[in-house]
Design a protein around this nucleic acid. Structure first.
Lengths: 143, 143
DNA sequence: TTTATTCCTACTAAAACACTAGGAATTGTC
DNA sequence: GACAATTCCTAGTGTTTTAGTAGGAATAAA
């Protein structure tokens, strides 16, 4: 029931990215340093975010990444789904089996559905922009 | 982000148990047959439920298990926590590290907190009794 | 005494996780 | 044009977790 490090690192990384990409693209190296995440591992994570159309890249020297759309249009759900696959707690493979209905009279699936919906609801309603604002405040307070 | 089979099987098993323990205790063998779960594996699962004080056992021939308290007093949260350990999606080990506050200015923890609370909220407010009722209805309709 | 059960602990194959590694392609800079 | 800094792509790998299996002791009903 734990999120993988891809999800944890990825969310931290993209908040960092959003926070530091005013004009220039942000390099993996710089995120890696600030967030203390392996460069090589970050590559993979950001690669997924790119494939999902959440960030865009600029190749070559002084290249890097920036958000593909406004932070107000990127939900935490968008980010986590692309890094973790679907975020359902139970896939209910049992539901698809003939056994399920006839033998164990699956009432548990209602539980899984509720949990799944609850999670989606939560993460779909938190936007990257909110996290960036909070991050900015923390940065401001620090000085 | 998936629940383990212990959680999935365990919830099915205890619903089955509650549904079939009118007077006599319910044996692992019978649950195993009805639910198509390995006897040996079920032993371990029910063992945990026992250790957590959710079910009680009667040893020896014609022994088995029954609920330790009314199904109205057992939440899905009680069951899943004992089978899965804590159900938080992220433990926030980062929060405890010095690094967290100074370097990545952890705003992500607010996300994890919301998700964790949402999950707890959901599973703490579904009671075994509700599932048993639903299961009973399914059984009734079947005949 | 036999049989049906719970109980306890150790083992194990397979899968998932959390990276590491190597190197190709691209592009700005001197 | 050479070099350096970057993204990009794919494969490998040690560790941990998962999903069971296995063996046998303890208990109690018949």
């Amino acid at each position: 029931m734990k999120l993988s490090s891809k999800g944890r690192y990825g969310l931290r990384a993209i908040v960092d990215l959003a926070l530091h990409s005013q004009n220039e693209p942000v390099s993996i190296k710089s995120i890696s340093k600030r967030q203390d995440i392996s460069e090589r591992y970050l590559e993979q994570i950001i690669g997924k975010l790119k494939k999902a159309g959440i960030v865009e890249s600029i190749r070559g020297a002084s290249g890097g990444y920036h958000l593909a759309r406004p932070a107000t249009d990127i939900s935490v759900g968008d980010i986590l789904r692309c890094l973790e696959g679907d975020l359902s707690v139970v896939n209910c493979p049992e539901v698809n089996e003939t056994k399920c209905e006839s033998s164990h009279l699956c009432v548990t699936k209602y539980v899984w559905q509720k949990v799944n919906i609850g999670i989606q609801d939560t993460i779909n309603h938190i936007y990257l922009s909110e996290l960036v604002e909070q991050g900015q405040q923390l940065l401001d307070n620090q000085q």
